[in-house]
């Protein structure tokens, strides 16, 4: 396999391993927030933010941890036939079916980008142009001018009213990482077909 592809696979694996290991420990943040919620309710005042905070942590947990879970092979497959195939046969089939998965992730990413643009106040449905414009403005004219490009910043309709764009940004990041991981898996399968373990 070309060196660049080996490098890509190794790089993606390492990055997602690192991020996934970080996401893995979010389980304790989740337990902590919910424990605090119980404690504060019993002894002080109920909190405004814990349930929603827990939901945000949960999103980070499963979205950022997803690629690492793919590395670990945690994703189930229906292996009625699959289970009986050889490594090479599996690689052939996977190299093909992974394209469907990429398509799904691509659509998911498209939706995430549109929704994040919306949460930054962009309403006309051209999210890529918006982000491009935003980026260019940020670089050429500075943060204040970029802020002006944004419109109504979406907040969660709760009493706590957190901004929504951070969690949507995490989703963009997570889906992108997943897409990279799946691409790495694709190359790995191609490698297996050629008899090389990447």
């Amino acid at each position: 396999m070309p060196k660049i592809i080996r490098g890509f696979v190794r790089g993606v694996d390492a990055m997602n391993y690192f991020i996934g290991r970080f996401a893995m420990y979010l389980i304790f943040a989740l337990i902590g927030v919910l424990m605090w919620s119980s404690v504060s309710k019993t002894f002080f005042e109920p909190t405004l933010w814990t349930l929603e905070m827990a939901q945000f942590i949960m999103v980070a947990f499963y979205v950022l941890g997803g690629p690492y879970a793919v590395q670990m092979g945690s994703n189930v497959r229906m292996d009625l036939f699959y289970g009986t195939w050889s490594v090479r046969q599996k690689a052939w089939m996977d190299a093909f079916t992974v394209l469907f998965l990429m398509f799904y992730l691509g659509v998911l990413l498209y939706g995430a980008i549109g929704s994040t643009a919306y949460s930054l106040g962009h309403f006309t449905g051209e999210p890529f142009a918006f982000f491009w414009d935003l980026g260019v403005t940020l670089v050429t004219e500075g943060p204040a001018a970029a802020k002006d490009k944004m419109g109504f910043i979406e907040r969660s309709p709760t009493a706590w009213r957190p901004y929504i764009w951070p969690v949507k940004t995490i989703m963009i990041l997570g889906v992108t990482l997943m897409l990279l991981q799946v691409t790495a898996e694709f190359f790995r399968d191609i490698g297996r077909i050629r008899g090389v373990e990447l």
């Binding site: 793919v70 994703n75 189930v76 497959r77 229906m78 292996d79 009625l80 036939f81 699959y82 289970g83 195939w85 599996k90 089939m93 996977d94 093909f96 079916t97 992974v98 469907f100 998965l101 398509f103 799904y104 992730l105 659509v107 998911l108």
Partner: peptide, 22 residues
């Protein structure tokens, strides 16, 4: 059909959803 190819289950379900949506 997607499930029978043995691909990751979320990929099979998600693909049909995304394709149906598109």
């Amino acid at each position: 059909l997607m499930l029978l190819t043995g691909q990751r289950v979320f990929g099979a379900i998600g693909f049909v959803a995304a394709a149906g949506g598109m």
